[in-house]
Simulated scan of single mutants.
Amino acid sequence: MVAGALVLSLVLILPVAFLAHTRYPRLDRWMNVLILAPFAVPPVVSSVGLLQLYAGGPLPLVGTPWILMLTYVSIALPFMYRSLINSLRSFEANELMEAAQLLGASPLTAFFNVILPNMRLGIRIAIFLSFSFLIGEFVFANMLVGTRFETLQIYLFNVRRESGHFTSALVITLFVFILILTWLGNGRGEITAPEAGDT
């Protein structure tokens, strides 16, 4: 669920962050207000509103994994957007786009071949920040899907009274898993200085 939410949020937010930084500076102001909404509204209140919103209609989503994934996208929005904007501000994105287009590249080709490689570290940071927050989220998972779709958080909540040793082992395994992912992300994200004589 978290992986699907991260992919969907990255696909949605990456173009918005790029356009807000390069073409529409006013959009950045609106996004700065929008990304505060998940923190301004308590999770319990958001859950009740989402239940009322998606309970009816031709495609009811209450109790299905899809409502949880869409909710996770809204939670990941602040972490994704701020990390991507900070990554774009670390290099001259406008100048790189103009230089690539002067050399004959289309805007889409310049974005994928010039901008995205420079944003790799920022994208990695955005993914790990969002993942570390979403993997431990309990309120939305419990209220929106409950026992109909048992996430890791719901599973830990249900077995905590049956076996404390098993629950502790599962939590430690989760922490080790996150530590390994973070180590891999940080290790491959390091930038090495060029040696003398390199062109």
Rank of each mutant, 00 (worst) to 15 (best):
G49S: 15
L51S: 03
Q52I: 06
L53Y: 14
L53Q: 10
G57S: 11
G57E: 10
P58M: 05
P58I: 05
L61N: 06
V62A: 11
G63R: 02
I67A: 04
M69V: 15
Y72G: 05
V73C: 15
I75V: 14
I75D: 01
L77E: 02
P78C: 02
F79S: 04
Y81C: 01
Y81S: 03
R82C: 03
R82L: 09
S83G: 05
I85H: 08
N86H: 15
N86S: 12
R89K: 12
F91L: 07
E92P: 09
L96F: 11
E98G: 06
A99M: 11
A100K: 10
L102M: 14
L102G: 14
P107E: 08
P107K: 08
L108T: 15
L108V: 14
A110W: 04
A110L: 02
F112N: 04
V114Q: 03
V114E: 08
I115Y: 07
N118G: 06
R120H: 10
L121K: 09
G122M: 08
I123A: 13
R124L: 13
I125E: 07
A126I: 07
A126S: 14
I127W: 13
S130Q: 03
S130W: 12
F131M: 15
L134Y: 01
I135E: 03
F138R: 01
F138L: 06
F138T: 01
F140W: 00
A141S: 14
A141W: 02
N142S: 11
G146E: 04
G146L: 06
G146V: 07
R148H: 10
R148T: 10
R148E: 11
F149C: 05
E150A: 03
I154W: 12
Y155K: 10
R161E: 15
R161N: 15
E162K: 11
S163F: 11
S163Y: 08
T167M: 13
A169I: 00
L170Y: 01
V171I: 15
V171C: 07
I172Q: 01
T173Y: 06
T173V: 08
